[in-house]
Design a protein around this nucleic acid. Structure first.
Length: 421
DNA sequence: TCTGGGGTCCTAGGACCC
DNA sequence: TCTGGGGTCCTAGGACCC
């Protein structure tokens, strides 16, 4: 049996852990630049005129009216809280697959079936006690069914955040309960396609012939279909998954026209992604850079372009990558536009020790010591405290807006929670 | 004024190889 | 008269997820 443990309204819950006096009030967390709502606790979700992913400026009035509390996103805090939850989960199973920042699959095949439900409650209660975070636990024979069980655990009050799909009758009941749009792996496009042939529930989707599903929805849909029918069709892996692409792209705090400032932002992002690259012991063999104007604006002239450059030798050297990124940026930048975003992507990622020299060059190792020192300093003193001078000093002119960011309670000594004695 | 960011996997088609 | 068959690698685009 497989359990899916999922934190409830994760980002909002993280904020509430350190502000218990806000419990019971609607709380939302905003995206970078404080642009959209990306997380909401159940009190905020209950306010129907405050939809998720809505731009904040459009619903500012409603937010104030309902006294909604909002936070800028604080990924340092969320990442560290996530790690605490994962550490606890590892005491409940030797096989934990970390699926996302707030979700993990656990292999529970060693747990006697009749005790699964109480085991799930134990997991839930322990996480709440040790971290302050509420979670839901769904247990079933396949991943897709455990996702579904998790949904039932949270949506049906009588379940009290735990649900086990064990018997065939449980499975049928769950499938009939779940709308097809809520099935993990069926998105907007496929939903429309299956609804055209009269499929409304997960149960309906488990009925059409497999050949039809395969033809319309590729092998991905086939796996979903099989797993809904109780057959294991997805791998379970506990391996640390090295990233196959590492990218970052953030909107600027304001629109920018000048190449030299955009260049600085671009270089800064290269510094960030290259650090992630080194942390997983990899090199990139290609680099992609893209820029875009604000496509939401009717008034601005629109332009967007991207370029991918293959590197002569795969590398994780920040200085080399910044130089390449700048060259690439010059090729796609056009004067006369007000840009909103620049992004970089590292592609063709391979293990460091696979890098092969070519006829004219050996793999570069000259900067390794320097990179190690820089990475250590940044780990200790905070992100990007030390960076290449190519990044420049005008960060204030492009950095994102985070007006309501909470303190990094768990990772910075000087931002720890203070309790009056 | 103001509209997120970071990923994965799959398929089709083109270019190329022997 | 008659012009193959089997394969790899790469990229772009689509679909999906949190």
């Amino acid at each position: 049996m497989i359990a899916l443990v999922d934190c409830n309204s994760f980002y909002a819950s993280c904020e509430l852990v350190f502000r218990p006096y806000l419990v019971g009030r609607p709380v939302v967390v905003l995206s970078n630049n404080d642009g959209c709502i990306i997380a909401a606790n159940k009190e905020a979700k209950a306010l129907t005129n405050i939809p998720m992913f809505e731009p904040v400026f459009k619903i500012k009035k409603q937010l104030l009216e309902h006294k909604v509390v909002f936070f800028s996103s604080n990924y340092t805090l969320y990442g560290e809280m996530s790690q605490r939850v994962i550490n606890i989960l590892k005491t409940f199973s030797d096989r934990v697959e970390v699926y996302s920042i707030d979700e993990s699959f656990l292999d529970l095949s060693d747990i006697p079936e009749e005790t699964l439900e109480s085991y799930a409650h134990q997991i839930k209660d322990t996480i709440l006690r040790y971290t302050g975070l509420p979670v839901g636990v769904g247990i079933a024979p396949t991943k897709v069914l455990s996702k579904l069980a998790n949904k039932m655990a949270k949506k049906r009050p009588e379940n009290n955040y735990v649900c086990v799909i064990r018997s065939e009758a449980d499975r049928i009941e769950a499938l009939k309960w779940c709308a097809v749009k809520d099935v993990w792996g069926i998105g907007k496009k496929h939903r429309e396609r299956v609804m055209n042939i009269g499929v409304a529930s997960a149960y309906d989707f488990s009925k059409p012939p497999l050949a039809w599903v395969r033809k319309e929805m590729t092998v991905v849909g086939e796996r979903t279909w099989r797993e809904l029918n109780g057959e294991v069709a997805m791998d379970f892996t506990t391996d640390f998954k090295k990233k196959k692409a590492i990218g970052t792209a953030k909107s600027f705090g304001k629109k920018l026209a000048n190449l030299d400032i955009i260049e600085e932002a671009c270089s800064y992002y290269v510094g960030e992604v290259t650090e992630v690259l080194r942390a997983q012991g990899s090199c990139a063999s290609a680099l992609q850079v893209y820029i875009t104007t604000n496509y939401h604006s009717d008034r601005d002239q629109q332009y967007a372009n991207s370029i991918t450059v293959k590197l002569a030798l795969p590398t994780n050297d920040t200085f080399v990558l910044i130089k390449e990124a700048k060259k690439a940026l010059h090729l796609i930048y056009k004067a006369g536009y007000r840009y909103k975003k620049v992004g970089v992507n590292l592609l063709g990622i391979i293990p460091e020790h696979y890098v092969q020299g070519n006829l004219f060059e050996l793999p570069s190792t000259s900067n390794n010591k320097l990179a190690q020192v820089v990475d250590r300093l940044n780990l200790k003193f905070g992100k990007s405290k030390v960076s290449s001078a190519l990044v420049g000093t005008r960060i204030k002119e492009w950095e994102l807006i985070k007006e309501e960011r909470s303190p990094r309670y768990t990772t910075q000594w000087n931002e720890m929670l203070r309790i009056k004695g």
